[in-house]
């Protein structure tokens, strides 16, 4: 993470925008009713235990000081987020099993993590203000799920979306299957899951996954402009719009967690995590 919090694109000229949150993996600046959150952890904003705690802290802040619109951006040049921190997951699993723990207990630990991350995703999904993801570079797995929990997605031409979980013998576990089907279609969901393919921004726009395709480097600026526009509207009308258009798919989300935890116990998942963690392959996603 950068040692100094920098204002995100669109705020450069403003020297009076206060930083309201500075955590290890993210920071947030506030300009009146607009909150801009910038994720910044190397190499590609992977989400692990620290990021989860920081996201929880962010939601504690927004619960106490709700903005009218919130933008999620990234300080990493090539990524919105590459998703779950698989190296941490591999390390924790091997440490657990190496010190006499059994897989059933590991599954319970995974369930605890999933419950916490679902708490974050659901709170974002149902927040009574507008949430916008500003996406450039890779947006995969858990990072994609974070973007899907937002109301709107702005992506530049470098953005690529994917659910690579099946390469590990898993399914998305942070609400991605339920939310992608809600936001677009089950057919697109199956295409992404069953082929593991990546999707570029133009195609993502065609299928309604993103709402605004922009030139490279412009995602955060456009997302902030979008946030300023939506912040002009009545908060009650915004909240009502979200209630009417974003039902929380409780049963589907629980089913996804169950499927993830069940698959996690398979020996092939442990092997795949080890391969990923030790990989020097230049093309792990291809």
């Amino acid at each position: 993470m950068s040692t100094e919090v920098q204002p995100p694109a669109g705020f450069e000229a403003r020297l009076d925008v206060p930083t309201v949150l500075a955590k290890q993996t993210l920071s947030a600046v506030r300009d009146g009713d607009i909150l801009v959150v910038t994720m910044d952890s190397e190499p590609a904003n992977e989400i692990g235990l620290q990021s989860l705690a920081d996201l929880e802290a962010l939601l504690e802040y927004t619960a106490m000081h709700p903005p009218r619109a919130m933008v999620f951006a990234s300080a990493r040049p090539n990524a919105f987020s590459a998703g779950a921190d698989l190296r941490e997951l591999h390390r924790e699993l091997e440490r657990h099993l190496g010190t006499g723990g059994d897989m059933a207990h590991a599954q319970r630990e995974v369930r605890v993590f999933l419950d916490r991350i679902h708490g974050v995703m659901n709170a974002l999904d149902q927040a009574p203000f507008t949430t916008i993801a500003a996406i450039s570079g890779v947006c995969m797995g858990g990072g994609f799920e974070l973007a899907l929990a937002c109301d709107l997605r702005v992506a530049d031409k470098s953005a690529r979306f994917a659910f690579p979980e099946l390469r590990l013998g898993l399914v998305p576990g942070w609400g991605g299957t339920a939310r992608l089907a809600r936001e677009t279609s089950p057919a697109l969901l199956r295409d992404l899951l069953l082929t593991g393919r990546t999707l570029g921004a133009p195609r993502a726009y065609e299928v309604g996954l993103i709402q605004s395709p922009v030139a490279r480097g412009e995602a955060t600026r456009v997302a902030i402009a979008m946030a300023r526009q939506t912040a002009r509207f009545s908060p009650d009308a915004v909240a009502a719009t979200k209630r009417l258009t974003k039902p929380l798919q409780v049963a589907e989300l629980e089913a996804e967690k169950d499927a993830f935890v069940a698959l996690f116990a398979k020996p092939t998942v442990r092997e795949a995590l080890a391969r990923f963690a030790n990989s020097t392959d230049i093309r792990p996603y291809l």
Binding site: A44, R160, T195, R197, T198, G200, P202, R203, Y285, L286
Partner: peptide, 25 residues
Amino acid sequence: GIDSFQALDLLSRLEEAFSCEIPDY
């Protein structure tokens, strides 16, 4: 001499330059 993320960026640039979609598979 590109890494995996740059390879994905190359894919996006190719799709843009040649006006076609290139699924990873």
